[in-house]
Simulated scan of single mutants.
Amino acid sequence: MNKQRQEKMAFAVLTVLMLIVVVPTLLIIGFIFVKGIGAINWGFLTEMPRKGMTEGGIFPAIVGTLYLVIGTIAFALPLGIGSAIYLTEYAKHGRLYRFIRLSILNLAGVPSVVYGLFGLGLFVLFLGFGSSILAGALTLGCLILPITITSSEEALKSVPRSYREASLALGATKWQTIYKVVLPHAMPGILTGAILGIGRAAGETAPILLTVAAFFLPRLPKSLFDQAMALPYHLYIISTQVPNMPEEVKYGTALVLLGIVSIFFAIANIVRFKFRKLSNL
């Protein structure tokens, strides 16, 4: 009877903790939706800003955000997965390995403004990319790289050792084992880390402020070396620097940013679900 009571108490405590996290999140999303839905229309989503962003739409900021997120994924995901494969499957567990692991964990806690200064010094000034989409995407890629590596490592470690041994026993090489056996089973966990990284990259302001974001740029970027508007920075500017900006425009911009992040989340979850189905076959 005591065990049943303890189990019920533990379940009640976990339920309360879950509600403490979920309910405020839903309230915030609902508040933004109610306050911002009035601003959402075709013109707001597809027109160029006018008169110092007091009129028109946010189309350049939407396109700039999409470019940055796609560029970040293209840089961070292959490099993060490759690094995790090396650390998990090939690296010897000595002092150097422990130092690298500790460095990755420490980098995950570095403030985003520090990554922005790093991107400004390396990509914008030293490599000569200038204030551009390329510099911003590489900076955001460095920002989410520790998350990607750590989550990919844990996903690779979760694949049973027996899978590797069975593949090697059948005559497969180590790389064939990793590519055809380990990665398909680890991919759902890897994509979970990618989802977290996408969410952080899409909402960051400090790194793009120093490497790519333009205050007012009523045109679309033509190359990776162009500046671009981005929704997080655009939202910051209209909320703090533009006087008499309607409240519904501010919340509408925030709602669009949430929508873009949700779309990327949905795509990643669909891909993760398909990989999970394949790994269970």
Rank of each mutant, 00 (worst) to 15 (best):
F118S: 06
I81C: 12
G141Y: 02
I20C: 13
F44Q: 12
P49E: 05
I144R: 09
V22W: 10
N2Y: 07
T72W: 03
T148F: 04
L120C: 13
L257K: 04
K274Y: 12
S103E: 12
N2G: 02
G197E: 06
G203V: 01
V212C: 08
H234V: 07
I195P: 04
L127K: 11
T25A: 10
L138R: 05
V181S: 03
I85A: 07
V113Y: 03
A254K: 03
R219C: 10
T88H: 04
L220V: 05
S162K: 11
A254I: 00
V261N: 01
L257T: 04
I267R: 12
V114R: 07
V212L: 07
P243Y: 08
I260A: 04
R164M: 11
L105H: 09
G64E: 00
Y67R: 03
T192S: 15
M18V: 10
L191S: 11
H185V: 13
L26K: 12
R95G: 14
M245E: 03
M1R: 15
I147F: 08
R272M: 13
L68A: 04
N106S: 12
L196F: 13
P60R: 03
V63D: 00
F31T: 11
Y179K: 09
G128P: 06
A39L: 03
L170Q: 15
G94N: 13
I208C: 02
A230E: 02
L105Y: 04
P232L: 02
I178D: 00
L122S: 10
F31K: 14
A206W: 02
S131P: 00
G116V: 00
K250P: 03
G56V: 09
A91Y: 06
